[in-house]
Amino acid sequence: MIRVDQVSHQIGGAPILHDISLEIPKGGITALIGPNGAGKSTLLSLMARLQVLRQGEIHIDDMQIGKVSDRVLARHLAIMAQSTHVSARLRVEELVAFGRYPWHRGRPGPEDHALVEAAIARFGLGPMRARFLDEISGGQRQRAFVAMAFAQDTDYLLLDEPLNNLDIAGARSLMRLLRQMADEDGKTVVIVLHDINYAARFADRIVALHEGRVAAQGPAAEVVTDALLRDVFGTDAEVSVIDGQPVVLV
């Protein structure tokens, strides 16, 4: 479980998050949504200890962010940052193999190799494993990064807008892979999403942020409503229910 207690945050004097308290239960996919500047990515990066937490507390299971070392946390929590633009020229298989780094610290053993092979197979990266990251498509690259996070073998996986720059096929296939990781491997996935429809379709829970506060949380059917779009997103788009699922008609 990820527990956020009374977290506030400012960046350069501008308040970004106001007194956020939140519990994200273990298992399943939780989507963070909200308009631009609502504080989604900031909240995620605080959970991932990528920004320094100044006010409030965040616990991942019994580990407190800020107290627990990066080394320990890296075995429990994997991060996929917003920009996966990597200037380094690495091969797909090399990237995935670095997911094992927190466990072997530079000396991979047979178990590490086996897990890397499993990740490559599972994410369908076999045909392109020896190619460089800058020689494959954006969708394939995102998949390689998720495979790396998978190889990291953590209970928690945090992703910041992984669907950016992906076409519909790439976006859906990535969300399906995350769904599979949550359902079959029992991983806890927390994901910042821009597109409400993807959140409604693939996430078990949605947390909507608005001006640094939690505006709503719960299953998609309860959170994604006309009122949310009006009050939080400031738009009069309508929500229609198709097959029991809310869909924003854009």
Binding site: S45, A48, R49, L50, S69, D70, R71, V72, L73, A74, R75, L77, A78, I79, A81, S83, V86, S87, A88, L90, E94, L95, F98, G99, Y101, P102, Q152
Partner: peptide, 16 residues
Amino acid sequence: TVMSLGEDAARGLGLN
């Protein structure tokens, strides 16, 4: 090499 993945990714892998 882990550093070359970017600061956030490197810290995510537990690198100092």
